[in-house]
Amino acid sequence: MGFTSEQVHWMFGVVIVATGMLLLLRHIAGMKGRWLDYVVPTALAIFGTEFALDPLVHGEAMPTNYAAEMTQHFIVSVVLLGASAAEFVRLARSGQSFAWRLPLVAALVVTAGIFALHAQHGGAPMLLLMTQHRMIAATLAVAALAVLLEAITKPSAHDRNAPAFPLLTVLLGVQLLVYTEGTGPLGMMTQ
C-alpha cells in the first residue's frame, strides 16, 4: 500500500479518536444502542489485524532495519486479537465476572510496555521517536488502570464506561494524530 510510518500512526489516530468519541457520547450524552458495546472489541480486532499486516500496509515505504519492530508488532497483534475475542465472549455472555476484563487490561499493559521499549527505525530524530512512543505508552498504562478500576467498581457489561477510559482513548488518538518523524505533510524533512 505504500504508507509511511507517520501515515500509519495518523490512520490509527483517526480510528482511535472516533472510538473514544463514541464512548464519550455514550457516557456524556446517553447515546444508546447495543452496537456501542461492540465498539471496543471491534477496534481491537481491526488494530490487531493491522499490526499483523503491517508489512503490507507499508509496502515499499517500509522503513529500513524493520525486523525488531515487526516482531513487536506481531506480539501486539496477538495480544489485541486475544483481548478482542475475550471482549466479544464477555458481551455475548452478558458481561461475565471481573476476570473477563483482565484480557483487555493485559493487552493494554503489554502494548504499553512494547511502546515504551519500541525498537526505532532509522531516518528520524531518535529522541523525538522515543519521547512520542513513551508518551503513548504512559497513556496506554493509565488506560489499563482505568479499565481495571472500572471492572472492580462496575463489572456489568451493560453499565456505561466510566469517563476515564473514553477520555484516555481520545487522548491516545490525538497523540497518534500529532505523531511525526520530523517530516512535513509531503514527506520532506523539515528544517
Rank of each mutant, 00 (worst) to 15 (best):
A85F: 04
H118P: 00
L23F: 12
L24V: 05
E60P: 00
A92C: 02
G182Y: 00
T111P: 07
A29F: 11
G173Q: 04
G122Q: 08
V170I: 11
F12Q: 09
A99Y: 03
Q96R: 12
L186R: 15
A119L: 03
M62D: 00
Q175P: 05
L23Y: 08
E60L: 13
V14C: 15
L172N: 08
H133L: 07
F74G: 14
V15D: 03
L177Y: 10
I136R: 10
M188G: 12
A107V: 02
Q191I: 01
V39I: 04
V8L: 12
P163S: 07
A18S: 05
T71N: 14
L127K: 14
E150R: 05
L176F: 11
A164G: 13
V78M: 14
A164Y: 03
F165S: 12
A68Y: 00
F98Q: 14
V76G: 09
G13H: 01
G187Y: 03
M21Y: 13
N65P: 05
V178C: 11
P155V: 00
I46S: 09
M189H: 15
L108S: 06
A157K: 06
V109C: 06
A67S: 13
A141R: 01
F115M: 13
G20R: 02
R93K: 13
A143T: 03
P166I: 00
Q132M: 06
S5L: 05
L129E: 14
G33A: 12
T19E: 09
A106V: 14
M188R: 12
R34H: 15
V110S: 06
T169D: 09
V57C: 05
Q72S: 10
M135H: 04
T64K: 11
T42R: 01
G187C: 06
A45P: 05
F88R: 08
G122T: 07
T153D: 09
P155R: 00
T131G: 04
H158I: 01
L140W: 01
I46L: 15
A92Y: 01
P125N: 01
Q120K: 09
A67E: 10
H9P: 06
P185G: 15
G59R: 01
E6C: 02
H58A: 14
T183S: 15
L148C: 13
G95R: 01
S156Q: 07
S5V: 03
I46C: 10
I136D: 15
S77D: 00
